Computed example of a mutant assay.
Amino acid sequence: MTLRRRATGLALAIATGTTLALTGCDAAKDAASDVIASATAAVASAAQEKMNEIKDGVDAAADVKAGRTSVDGDRTVAEITATNPKDKTADYTVMVNFRDGDGNLLDAVVLNIDGVEPGTSKSGTARSNRTLTGDTTAEIAQALRH
């Protein structure tokens, strides 16, 4: 299943969960929380599957930094910067987790930053799959240089 298809499923699950949460019933609120948690886990799983497709990558978490989050339209975004310490041009594939103030996973995305020249930095924007509310942070879950 593609990441886009899973993101669409996530949006439907969130809409369902929001509808249930608005009913005021504790059981409905619990069900909504379960739906949202399940959908978030599915998106994170899809992002990890995308990372697993990179066969020639080496761990490059130390090369990549996440900036502060901000809102762009209805999505949360963060600037991600890769700094290439090697002597040849490299591409980076980065899994970014968006978390709330309590550290709970809200969303996960995969970002490619291609053509980073030796000794230089290049940035890209990680964009959430859905609307996130509250105080959010972006963290580098995994980064591969290839």
Rank of each mutant, 00 (worst) to 15 (best):
R4C: 00
T8A: 14
G9W: 02
G9P: 00
A11C: 02
L12E: 14
L12M: 13
A13Q: 11
I14A: 12
A15K: 14
L20V: 03
L22K: 13
A28E: 07
A28Y: 04
K29N: 08
A32M: 06
A32I: 07
I36R: 01
I36P: 00
A37S: 12
A41T: 13
V43A: 15
A44R: 08
A47C: 03
Q48P: 05
E49T: 13
M51E: 08
E53Y: 06
D59I: 08
A61W: 00
K65A: 12
A66C: 10
R68H: 07
S70C: 04
R75M: 03
V77S: 01
V77R: 02
T81R: 13
T81D: 10
A82H: 11
N84Q: 11
P85G: 08
P85K: 10
K86I: 00
K86A: 14
D87T: 13
Y92T: 09
Y92R: 11
T93K: 09
V94I: 15
N97P: 07
F98Q: 07
F98E: 06
F98S: 06
R99E: 13
G101Q: 11
G103V: 01
A108W: 06
A108R: 11
A108S: 15
N112I: 04
I113Y: 03
D114R: 14
D114C: 02
G124P: 08
T125H: 00
T125V: 10
T133W: 03
G134D: 01
E139L: 03
I140V: 15
A141P: 00
A141Q: 12
Q142E: 15
A143G: 12
R145N: 02
R145E: 06
R145S: 11
